[in-house]
Design a binder for these strands. Structure first.
Length: 283
DNA sequence: TTACTCCTGGCC
DNA sequence: GGCCAGGAGTAA
């Protein structure tokens, strides 16, 4: 399930090989992959094909879990990989029934979007700046240098909502999903059920520091491949070897040796060590 | 704020 | 054959 480190890895791959290539042919096999622009409501497939054919990829950007394919002419595609989406630039012809979008490029290569579970989507952003299209749905990127500790705390703390839910809210800080939220909370020693308003200053410091450490470590290892995820060239990530709690139910906590617990929390599998992760009760 | 819905491969 | 995984939009 692609989160910030996986999407950033795809972005780096695609930026290295796709930039300045002209699109010669386009196929959107499934109409429901196209999401309407929230500002215009437009999801017309003929417009999508007409705009893309003949355009060049100017650059690849990222905001949270969203990839932004910037095309020449100040417009672009916002691609969300959902749970099982992959966007791979290579030579393989898109024969697969799960290959919903395919671009053919001037050098004979292809860009193929596969998404078996179809939670992903493409949004045609017709106007600059493209990031404006995401403004109401996506907050500041978790690795944005402008996000300092004070701003992080100000965004997440004013609520009794459990801290894990706040970390997963893309409108606040964008990029974290279930795997990294669990890993970051374990690293920071905070119970995921703690009300965010009850965390003390030391907890916010640890949370902010560990968020950076975990995400940057995962980017270095090209993300976590548990099943579907592949990078922009079809390769796998290796951060799963570094996971401390996610998917480790019943295994020994790497810190205290007691078993890792798993519970269903607000509809999400949540992995934690009840001994190492303190429930914040506030003052 | 919370619960439900979408979807399908993998597992039991 | 049935359950589970989960991001995000929507309805209540």
């Amino acid at each position: 399930m692609p989160e910030l480190p996986e999407v950033e890895t795809v972005r780096c791959n695609l930026a290295a090989t796709l930039r300045e290539l002209r699109v010669t042919s386009v196929c959107f096999r499934r109409r429901d992959i196209l999401r309407p622009d929230p500002r215009t409501g437009s999801d017309a497939i003929d417009l999508a094909i007409r705009k893309t054919c003949g355009s060049r990829v100017r650059d690849i950007d990222r905001l949270g879990k969203n990839l932004i394919l910037k095309m020449n002419g100040a417009w672009g595609w916002i691609v969300h990989l959902g749970m099982s989406g992959t966007l791979v630039h290579g030579c393989a012809p898109p024969e697969d029934v799960h290959a919903h979008v395919a671009w053919w490029l001037e050098d004979g290569s292809t860009l193929v979007f596969r998404d078996p579970r179809r939670f992903g989507g493409w949004t045609l952003a017709e106007y600059a700046p493209i990031r404006e299209v995401l403004r109401d749905r996506v907050g500041i990127d978790a690795l944005d240098p402008a996000l300092n500790l004070a701003r992080f705390r100000d965004l997440l703390s004013p609520s009794i909502t459990p801290i894990k839910c706040r970390l997963l809210d893309q409108r606040l800080v964008a990029g974290l999903g279930n795997i990294y939220a669990d890993e970051i909370l374990f690293a920071a020693g905070i119970d995921p059920r703690s009300p965010s308003c009850a965390l003390d200053h030391a907890s916010w410091e640890r949370l902010f520091r560990e968020m950076h450490r975990v995400l940057e470590g995962a980017v270095c290892r090209r993300g976590t491949t548990l099943s579907d995820y592949r990078d922009g060239w079809g390769g796998m990530g290796s951060y799963h070897a570094c996971l401390a709690v996610y998917g480790k139910e019943g295994e020994d906590c790497p810190r205290c040796g007691n078993p890792i617990h798993r519970m269903s929390f607000r509809g999400r599998g949540t992995h934690f060590c009840p001994r190492c992760q303190q429930f914040a009760k506030g003052r």
